[in-house]
């Protein structure tokens, strides 16, 4: 029953999302959400902010691609996303309106049997991947700098940590 309800999402899209990107992005989101300090640092940095925006768009677009695979309801979600291109909530800001709205011709020609939103989502992803990579490298840099600082001053920092007794508490 459910198989009939869903349109054919290209297998390449599923592979890239479910098996690869989505798993990694989920890890990244977990890492950022878990660490408030890291999150605040990223928001303060232009590369970090751009990367976080790209991450949000990726989540939004993935949800829309999935929703778009449901007949009728999917079209409503897809068209709503197209209308949002006129606002600041545009989930595909690097895709022109002509391309985004033009992709709807596929819906008409194929009688809405192909979830065409994946075209603009893929185009946006191509623009966002370098931003995500820059975000990851920034996180790597922040964490490395902190660790290098710790290693250079380890005895002093460990001594200070011991004064506040967290070591004993955490070891329990």
């Amino acid at each position: 029953m459910s198989e009939k309800l869903f349109k054919s999402v290209p297998s390449a899209v599923i592979e890239r999302t479910e098996m690869g990107m989505v798993g990694q992005v989920r890890e990244l989101v977990r890492l950022i959400l878990w660490d408030k300090v890291l999150r605040d640092k990223l928001v303060d940095n232009p590369i970090g902010k751009e990367g976080l925006d790209a991450l949000k768009r990726l989540g939004k677009n993935f949800s829309i691609v999935l929703a778009d695979s449901v007949p009728v309801l999917g079209s409503v979600v897809h068209w709503s996303a197209d209308v949002l291109k006129l606002s600041k909530h545009d989930a595909t800001p690097d895709v022109s309106k002509l391309t985004a709205w033009g992709a709807n011709i596929i819906d008409v020609l194929t009688l809405d049997t192909i979830p065409s939103y994946w075209i603009q989502a893929a185009l946006q992803l191509r623009k966002d991947l370098p931003k995500l990579q820059a975000l990851l490298k920034l996180i790597q840099k922040i964490r490395t700098e902190e660790m290098e600082d710790y290693e250079e001053n380890q005895s002093q920092v460990d001594g200070a940590i011991r004064v506040f007794g967290t070591e004993e508490r955490d070891e329990k």
Binding site: L129, I139, R143, T144, A160, I161, F164, D170
Partner: peptide, 29 residues
């Protein structure tokens, strides 16, 4: 002290995850 400790303890695991993510993004690019 607890923030510093948390950061030190999770460093290796976090860096491993980040490196893995960079590789996946590179492949996707």
């Amino acid at each position: 002290a607890s923030l510093k400790q948390k950061s030190i303890i999770s460093y290796d695991a976090d860096m491993k995850k980040i490196n893995q993510m960079i590789l996946v993004v590179e492949k996707e690019k």
